[in-house]
Amino acid sequence: MTADRLAGYIAQMNEAALKASDFLSGMGYDAFAADERTQMAVGMTLVLIGDAAARIMQHYPDFPVEHPEIPWNKIKGMRNVVVHDYYELDLPVVFETVQKALPDLVIQLDALRHWRPQGE
């Protein structure tokens, strides 16, 4: 696996996080709870973020250790919940995750954009 692939996974996480935020832009919880289309769109972004995080954890195991500020296991865990328990999703948790955790994640991922392994 190359550093370019790692950068691609980081970019995928960032793009999906931004899309999730866009999907909920200007929407309160009640509107989100009543809008199945937005719930499904947001759920898919969480899957995409989690898939990219899982690939980083699998193919670049040192990277998450070097960047503990990103909650890698929680991100992967949210992906698993969305995929395996979609009809049991706790919508307030999903809404809060997008509203509060994803903006922080975008900032953290932006800080990694210029990351290069030592020696490059």
Rank of each mutant, 00 (worst) to 15 (best):
T2R: 12
A3G: 11
I10W: 03
I10S: 05
Q12P: 02
A16H: 01
A16C: 09
A17H: 00
K19W: 02
K19E: 13
A20I: 03
S21H: 14
F23W: 10
F23M: 12
L24P: 00
L24R: 03
S25H: 11
G26L: 06
G26M: 07
M27R: 09
G28Q: 08
G28E: 10
A31N: 10
A33W: 01
E36W: 05
A41S: 09
G43L: 00
M44Q: 12
L46M: 15
V47T: 13
I49M: 06
G50W: 05
G50Y: 06
D51T: 12
A52T: 09
A53Q: 10
I56F: 09
H59K: 13
Y60M: 11
D62P: 01
D62S: 14
V65E: 15
E66A: 15
H67G: 03
P68H: 07
P71G: 02
P71V: 01
W72Y: 05
K74Y: 00
G77E: 05
M78G: 03
M78S: 07
N80T: 06
V82A: 04
V82L: 02
H84W: 11
H84A: 07
Y86D: 11
Y86T: 06
Y86Q: 08
Y87T: 14
E88K: 14
E88S: 14
L89K: 04
P92I: 05
V93I: 14
V93G: 02
E96A: 13
V98R: 01
L102G: 01
L102M: 07
L102A: 08
D104E: 14
V106K: 10
V106R: 06
I107K: 15
I107S: 15
L109I: 06
L109W: 04
L112T: 08
H114Y: 09
W115H: 13
W115Q: 01
R116N: 11
P117G: 09
P117M: 08
G119D: 09
E120Y: 14
E120G: 15
